[in-house]
Design a protein around this nucleic acid. Structure first.
Length: 585
RNA sequence: GCUAGCGUGGCUCAAUGGCAGAGCACAUCACUCGUAAUGAUGGGGUUGUGGGUUCGAUUCCCACCGCUAGCUCCA
């Protein structure tokens, strides 16, 4: 990289440094305005920065404006940022004198051999490893925006003090900030909660927080998605089962869920026996596997289940279809021998790739390792983590490690997809498990005639059907590809005279399996087009006197493109090709 | 669950310590029209729920429910 490029916003390191210095400027501004505020931590993040603070009052939007304006002053003052280091006792003394109790705790927790560095700009000094810009004058004061103020736990621990976190964003040019803010506004229009309402896909009610209702159009979407899912899984050799939504306590104790997941489970008592609504499908799947003897010849045995699970999520975590309390997992358990593990994992990743690419979705992978609350030995966990790692590394895929975030029974590869605002949501997951087969004493007969214990993976591609529908709604901004669109064609008669003709056209398309509606209202054609376009229906067939005379339909795409008049057969062939091309690969 | 904010017809949003409004949607009537909104008329609200303050509360206070942002958690 050339010297010049090092100092552009294109360079992620420079960007992070810029934002990190912004966070110090923000902290300085806050301390100038309210010296009693205590500082916690203030890093740069993917988009901007934040600083956690403890203030004796709640920050309001007006406070944020005040801070912004003080920040602009600090930028104009062109204060030099100077780094200095102190031995531990002096460092502690400095922060204690300033009353920065959080900083004191941070210094106490630094490793013995760590250099303790500070950055000083004007009257403001902050504990910080750096790096930083050399002067606050490098920051463009009028291209700073404090975007939000929220609560955050000190050191991310929900049992500790709640701090206030102020988020900020800045660019080297005002135009770029404006563009960024406009982009955020634009993205909000693609929010699946808004589109879901506008397009009549689903609804949420106070009567059932986190329990979504699917409306007729949403059901068509869901069922079409599942049809596709079943086709793909059939191709990959899966069979499908369905297990009960409620099972007795004994089963959940055996699987470990009662001990490790009880807080998230809905329970009830039936005939004096404790039951739980399933939060996961695996125990049911175990029972199916264990219900008959298996041969090594059957392995890997791929058993899918679209399973409705219920989990008691925290009320504050609920979010449209992205985080709900009941959802359908496109689950599957693959039972296999130890030798088959790598192949099965890789085959599963290929299946994921096929599904995600059908929707044009890209993903990032996280490897989640052993959580504190787990079953099985550390050796077993490490072995399984290594297998997951090796399998994807061998496929040339990148991943990041998410320490301690595995399922209680095994490590997992999580596939994250992004929403319209760039927030990522876990959809796919591949969880490697040698614990449940043990607990359920699963067996297969090997080539040697002896009983052996299989291992298994738990995996979902879509993750939750609900969440996935949310993700693709935002991804396509509600304009689903024709094969998925709840309504594929809307027939728009120009006048009442064409009403009957429109119905005939509609009936013929319906016979061919297309999803079609007629807008027979007594409205002007312009209005019908406008509304069908807003409903994001892929094709509009305008039919009037001319079409009736010529036996044609006038085809308009939702993009606004006029495809002209054609016969119904020609149109059906065109739509048929588009739909077929998308669904069968 | 935590912190802050919010809750007004089906939807989007006004307004106010003193008769709750608009646009869209809906219904009726007129118009029969060729590629992004025809006009007129009409119906529809215990202002999330329950308390309190007040002559009077949708507005102020309290509690609860729900929503939003983030934290935490997770598909």
């Amino acid at each position: 990289m050339s010297e010049e490029n090092l100092y552009t916003f294109e360079n992620p390191e420079y960007r992070a440094t810029y934002w990190h210095t912004c966070s110090h400027v923000m902290a300085q501004a806050v301390k100038r305005l309210w010296p009693e505020v205590k500082l916690a931590i203030g890093p740069s993040i993917d988009e901007g920065w934040y600083y956690d603070m403890d203030a004796p009052f709640a920050f309001t939007p007006e406070h944020l404006e005040q801070i912004e304006s003080e920040m602009r002053k600090i930028c104009k003052e062109k204060l030099k940022l100077e780094r200095f280091e102190l031995p531990r006792p002096e460092a502690l003394k400095l922060m204690e004198e300033k009353g920065e109790s959080f900083k004191v705790e941070l210094i106490h927790d630094l490793p013995e051999d760590e250099v303790i560095s500070f950055y000083k700009q004007g009257e403001f000094t902050d504990l910080c490893a750096g790096p930083h810009l050399d002067s606050t004058g490098r920051i463009k004061g009028n291209a700073i925006k404090l975007t939000a103020c929220n609560a955050a736990y000190w050191r991310g621990d929900s049992s500790r003090q709640t701090l206030q976190r102020i988020y900020g964003m800045a660019f080297p040019k005002k135009d770029e900030l404006d563009e960024y803010l406009a982009k955020i506004e634009e993205a909000k229009k693609r929010d699946h909660r808004r589109l879901g309402k506008e397009l009549g896909l689903f609804m949420l009610r106070d009567e059932g927080p986190g329990f979504p209702f699917f409306l007729p159009k949403g059901m068509v979407l869901k069922n079409t998605l599942l049809d596709y899912w079943r086709k793909v899984h059939k191709k990959y050799g899966y069979v499908e089962i369905s297990t009960p939504i409620m099972l007795n306590r004994q089963l959940w104790e055996r699987s470990g869920h009662w001990d490790h997941y009880k807080n998230n489970m809905y329970t009830t008592v039936i005939d004096d026996v404790d039951f739980a609504v399933k939060p996961m499908n695996c125990p049911g799947g175990m029972l199916v596997y264990a219900s008959e003897p298996h041969s090594y010849r059957e392995l890997p045995l791929r058993v899918g289940e679209i399973g409705l699970v219920h989990r008691h999520e925290l009320s504050g975590a609920l979010h449209g279809l992205f985080r709900v309390r009941c959802f359908n997992q496109d689950d599957a358990h693959v039972f296999m021998t130890r030798e088959q593990m790598q192949d099965v994992i890789q085959e599963t990743v290929r299946l994921f790739d096929e599904v995600y690419s059908t929707f044009g979705l890209s993903y990032t992978i996280e490897l989640s390792t052993m959580p504190e609350d787990h079953i099985g030995t550390v050796e077993e966990w490490e072995k399984n983590q290594d297998i997951l790692k090796a399998a994807i590394t061998d496929m040339g895929k990148d991943f990041v490690i998410n320490e301690g975030d595995g399922a209680f029974y095994g490590p997992k590869l999580d596939f994250h997809l992004a929403d319209s605002l760039g927030r990522t949501w876990q959809c796919g997951t591949i969880q490697l498990d040698s614990q449940l087969p043990e607990r359920f004493q699963l067996e297969y007969t090997g080539e040697d005639g002896e009983k052996h214990r299989p291992v298994m993976i738990h995996r979902v591609v879509l993750g939750s059907i609900e969440r996935f529908i949310g993700v693709i709604t935002e991804h396509f901004a509600g304009a689903f590809p024709a094969w998925l669109a709840p309504v594929q064609v809307k027939v728009l008669p120009v006048t009442d005279r064409a009403g009957e003709y429109a119905e005939k056209i509609s009936a013929r398309l319906d016979e061919q399996g297309f999803r079609v509606e007629v807008d027979g209202r007594n409205e002007k054609i312009g209005k019908k087009i406008r509304e069908a376009t807003l409903e994001k229906i892929p094709y509009m067939l305008v039919v009037g006197d001319r079409d009736m005379e010529n036996g044609t339909v006038s085809v308009r795409h939702r993009s606004g493109e006029d495809l002209g008049a054609m016969t119904l057969d020609q149109f059906a062939a065109l739509l048929g090709d588009e739909v077929k091309e998308m669904i069968i690969k």
